[in-house]
Amino acid sequence: MSGEYERSERPLADAAVGERRHLINLAYRMLGSPAEAEDAVQEAYARWYAMPPAQRQAVAAPGAWLTTVVSRVCLDVLGSARVRRERYVGEWLPEPLPDRTEWLGGAGGGPADPADRITLDESVGMAFLVVLESMTPAERVVFVLHDVFRYPFPEIAAIVDRTPAACRQLASSARRRVRAARVPSAGQSQQALAVRHFREAWEAGDIEALVGLLDPAATMVADGGGLVGAAVRPVEGGARIARYLVLMAGKAPGLTLLERTVNGAPGLVAQRDGVTATVAALDLVDGRITRIWAVRNPEKLGRWTVPAGA
């Protein structure tokens, strides 16, 4: 009898475990943090395995059940996160993602990391994630489910306990935020070239060259979390950003600048003695850098461990 039961449970367990990558991708876009995404997914699996076996057997679609739980957990996390971020020192930015070959354990057979399960596409670009941060928790969850993962509104309504009409309104409101913030993005090769020129000018301390690469109305946002030095307010204007960058470089001798993939796009990593101090994502329009997001909070940089010169 027990053998028959185990055989009947195995396909169900395999189906549930097979959803992990999808759930991590969903939760990261909702929360902007691989660690929080992993916690949300773990919570969903904990609830799944806490159910009596007969109750699990009654679930026709484990993936749909787990998606519902993860989405509701993310709604709760986003609600509490808004309160926490009101107390956050300076600007809060999403945790940057390296290419899967560049995080600790990613290329060397180390332990599995949730970041390695996240698909790097435009929906995890820093610009997109920052717009998601401006949404209400309900807007963000509904928008990610519908516009990113293509769930139909009747299914989303059941997930978030709202009517389909209410979900449509939330998605429409979220879409307006995205449209208002969206600008034409540069191609990968153009952005990589701009990042290279930017790195060379920064290394040389060439303020004039930096100003030429930056849009006159460019904005730089830094996230130090109160743990390391960082501008607590956005630095606005290409000339001001250039002077600020050169000043900061002068105060931190020995920095090595590396061209690395940041959330799926060319970006920069600053290291000192092999330890990552800053990860910078950049946005480019018409050949000039318009926005820089510099993550300096060490709690968000644990995966950025590429040795200098690698």
Rank of each mutant, 00 (worst) to 15 (best):
D113L: 11
P114A: 02
P114N: 05
A115N: 05
A115S: 14
A115P: 04
R117E: 14
L120F: 10
D121F: 04
D121N: 15
D121V: 13
V124A: 11
M126D: 02
M126L: 14
M126C: 09
F128L: 08
E133A: 06
M135D: 00
M135Q: 06
T136I: 05
P137K: 00
P137A: 04
E139W: 10
R140M: 01
R140Q: 04
R140V: 04
V142M: 03
V142T: 15
V142G: 07
F143T: 14
F143K: 05
F143N: 10
V144A: 09
V144D: 07
H146Q: 00
D147P: 03
V148L: 08
A157N: 00
I159A: 07
V160M: 12
R162E: 09
R162I: 06
T163P: 02
P164K: 00
C167S: 07
R168M: 00
Q169S: 15
L170I: 06
A171I: 05
S172V: 02
R176V: 15
R177Q: 07
R177E: 08
R179D: 10
R179S: 12
V183Y: 00
V183G: 06
P184S: 00
G187C: 13
G187K: 14
G187R: 15
S189Q: 14
Q190C: 11
A192W: 05
A194E: 06
V195D: 01
R196F: 01
R199G: 01
A201K: 08
E203T: 15
A204S: 11
G205V: 04
D206Y: 06
E208L: 05
E208R: 03
L210R: 01
V211G: 08
G212C: 11
D215T: 11
A218M: 12
T219Q: 02
M220N: 08
A222M: 01
D223R: 08
G224N: 08
G224I: 01
G225W: 06
G226N: 10
G229R: 11
G229M: 08
V232K: 15
V232N: 11
V232C: 10
R233P: 06
P234S: 09
P234W: 01
V235K: 12
V235C: 09
E236W: 07
G238I: 00
G238T: 07
A239D: 08
A239Y: 03
R243K: 11
Y244Q: 11
L245E: 07
L245S: 09
V246H: 04
L247K: 10
A249M: 14
K251M: 07
P253A: 05
G254I: 10
G254H: 09
T256Y: 06
L257P: 03
